[in-house]
Every structure is written in structure tokens, then in C-alpha cells.
Design a protein around this nucleic acid. Sequence first.
DNA 1: CCTCTTATTGATCGATCGATCTCTTAGCTT
DNA 2: AAGCTAAGAGATCGATCGATCAATAAGAGG
Lengths: 218, 218
Amino acid sequence: MARVRLAREARERLIVEGAIRFFAEVGFGGQTRELARQLGMSQSLLFKYFPTKQALVDRVYEEVYLSRWNPYWEVLIENARMPLRQRLLKFYSEYAQRIMDYYWIRIFLYAGLLGSEINKNYLDLLRSRIIYKICHAVRNEAGLPSVSDGELSERDLQLVWALQGSILYLAIQRHVYRNLPDEEIDGVIEDRVDAFLKGALSVVGRAAEAPATEETSA
Amino acid sequence: MARVRLAREARERLIVEGAIRFFAEVGFGGQTRELARQLGMSQSLLFKYFPTKQALVDRVYEEVYLSRWNPYWEVLIENARMPLRQRLLKFYSEYAQRIMDYYWIRIFLYAGLLGSEINKNYLDLLRSRIIYKICHAVRNEAGLPSVSDGELSERDLQLVWALQGSILYLAIQRHVYRNLPDEEIDGVIEDRVDAFLKGALSVVGRAAEAPATEETSA
DNA sequence: CCTCTTATTGATCGATCGATCTCTTAGCTT
DNA sequence: AAGCTAAGAGATCGATCGATCAATAAGAGG
């Protein structure tokens, strides 16, 4: 095999980025020999940079998630000077572009199915920095009184998770089902946001007004 | 190992159902030895019933999908005598219950990531038997003219896929992220359907009215 | 040009994989 | 009870896995 001598950091980046591509394609059950072959290096070299395969997998987790979170989103989403619709359009347009990445969505799902901690951490991040804030904003838009994070009902939060899930579903359609056309994605996202606003504003808080006993009208 | 002699069909069912549980948990990379151990039988016996591991995996696919599709749904969803909201509530209540099954959703995702044909077939089924019909119904409700399946725009169809994705997301939250509470699921689904109706009715068909050139106002 | 450092390779180990083969035995038939 | 059929277990094969180790060579420094 052609011996190419690289600096420590350059080789490591090569391995990590190759591992992202490789594991996204075949899952974390993929073999180190096949990964090394795709990278054009010997298999044993991988273990000079990462003591175990799991260490490389963990590195892939971190690389894919934490490095792709934009802290500006948290500021954007609670910027009260911008209309809510505009905030949502801007956020979900950028966010969708980020997660509609072949490697991101597939590794996210593989990691989730494996029960990875990184996956849970990411969702906690999403909930506390985005979902809660959108939920507050929707309640505010609907004229409902302000409450603390803890007072938000699960049903109201689920309204926002539904939007979140429908955006994630775009990525799933494209990179898992492989049947989402390229064109009009911006329009599709705009539709989702507008449909969400119309819908959420009309049902937010209604469970709290008419509690538990739904069957009384029967 | 305790030798238990069973009829051909009984043993086969035991294997298939055990394989569903097993592969749903660990993915299709799971080992036949471990599966046999969980089933309390020898590993070699598996190969008496299925010539290869792949044959068993294929059987699991069929078992999980085709056997869990309710043909009545197709009738229900286009029953014009029932109000659309009621049809959607009934369908998605039943459908969500079906897919919010630990084994179904996890095997569905594993199969999707592997690019399984069964997965694609299932989505074709969903599109032709459900999504199209809901889209027609929504257009009808919105007072838009009737069109053929082929004339439905991708954007209008995506409105329905957004609802579909948000329902699937419930299953993902529960069985992949493992953080969806049990209570109020019916209410959450009702919210999703109502939010969808409000939202979809307000944006359906709008892309067709103001085609392609969106930037003319700038 | 020589030497030292270290990035890199190829050979190999021990465990584990799917799959096969041989032998055993439960249970029906007569 | 004997014999036959076929369900089942256990041993094992050859390939493949993650991981290790000793040998090699590229490149920097004198």
C-alpha cells in the first residue's frame, strides 16, 4: 500500500471525516477494515489514532452533533422585535438545511436506535433552547398569559414537537426513504411553518381550559 | 440444553416472533447465537427453518409490515359521508396506535436505513392509499376543484406528509428517544389533526395560484 | 550523509460470526 | 415394543471481526 506520511492532526481529520461518511452509510456495525480501505490506509493505523472502535464512534457522535449546532438560533428564536412567523421561517429554513444532511440525519437515527447519550443530550438541547421558547412565543401570540417553562403543558409542547418532527421528516424522506425531490424545499418549509402557526394558534391552551373529562358531551 | 420438540409451524412462529423482538432491539446486525439463546434453542436449529440469516430477516420484514396494514383504513379515509375531521381522527388514532409499537417503529427505521425494498413498498402503499386521498379531501374541503392523483402538486402532498411525519415522530419519541409520556396521547393526536386541518386548509393550493416567481415583490 | 523520531504497514492473534455436519431422541405408527 | 420419521443439540468449519505487535520508511535536525 502506498505509504503517505501525514501530520498527526491531518491524519486524524481524515479518519474522523471518513468515519462519518462510512458509518452514516452502513451504520456503526461497519468494519474497520472496510473503513481503512475507503480511506486508503492500513486498518492498524486507525488504532494508532483511536484506541478502540468505540472511541472512534464516540468521536463521530461529537463531530456530527455539537459542531453543527448554531448558538445564534437561540437568540434568533426569542428575538421579540421580529414577527414570530419571520423568526420561525428563518430558524427552520436554516435548521432544515443543517439536518437535511445525509450524514447528520443517518448518524442521528443510528445513534438514537442504539440509545446513545449524545442523542439524548442533543434532544435536551433542542427542548430547552428551541421548543420551550417557541411554545412561549405561540402562547403569547395567542394572547395566553405568560408562564414558566415548567408550567408549559405537555400537550402545548407537543404542538411544537409536531412541527419539529415534520421538519425532521423532510430529512428522513430525503436520506432514508430517498424519495424527496430537490425543488421547492423552501416553499415546503414555508408551508409547514405557516400551517403550524395557523394550527397551533387555534388549539394552544385548549386542553387546560377544558381539562381531563372529555367524554362529558357523550 | 432442554430438548423441546414442537410442531413445524409452532417452532417457526416462535422463531419469527423472537426474531422480531430481537432485531427490533439490536438491529439486523444481531447475532444468530444470541437470538437462539433468547429463544432457548440451539443456534443450528434456526438454520433448519431458514436457510440463511437474510431469509429470516426478510421474513421479519414481511411479518412486521404487511400483516399490520388494515385495508379498512383505505375505505374509511375516503368515506365522504363522514366529516373529514372525524375521518382523520379515527384513522390517525388507529394508525398511531399501530405504529407506536416498539417493534414496528424500530424495525421500520432499521429497514429504512438499510434501504430495504419492503420499506419502499410500504411507503408506496401509504402514499397511494392514504396520502393522496387525504390531499384530495383537503382540497375539496378548501373549495378547490377536483383533480387527478397526478395533478396533485408536491407542495400540497407535502402538507399531508407533514402530518404523517408528525405522527411517526410520536412513535420515534417514545421508542427511539424514549421520552414520550403515556398520558394524553389521544389528546396529542387530536391536537395534531386539528392543527393540521386549520393549517392545511389555509395554505393548500396557494403555490399553484402564485406560481414559481416568488421574488417579484422584492 | 547519518541518525533519531515517529507515522505507517503487514502479519497475526484470539474471539466471534454465519453456516454445516453428525449424532441424538421424541413421538407417531403398526 | 420395535421401527421409522423428523425435530433438535452439539461440535466444528472457514471466514471475518477488533485489536496487537514487530518491522519499515519518511522526514526533520545536525
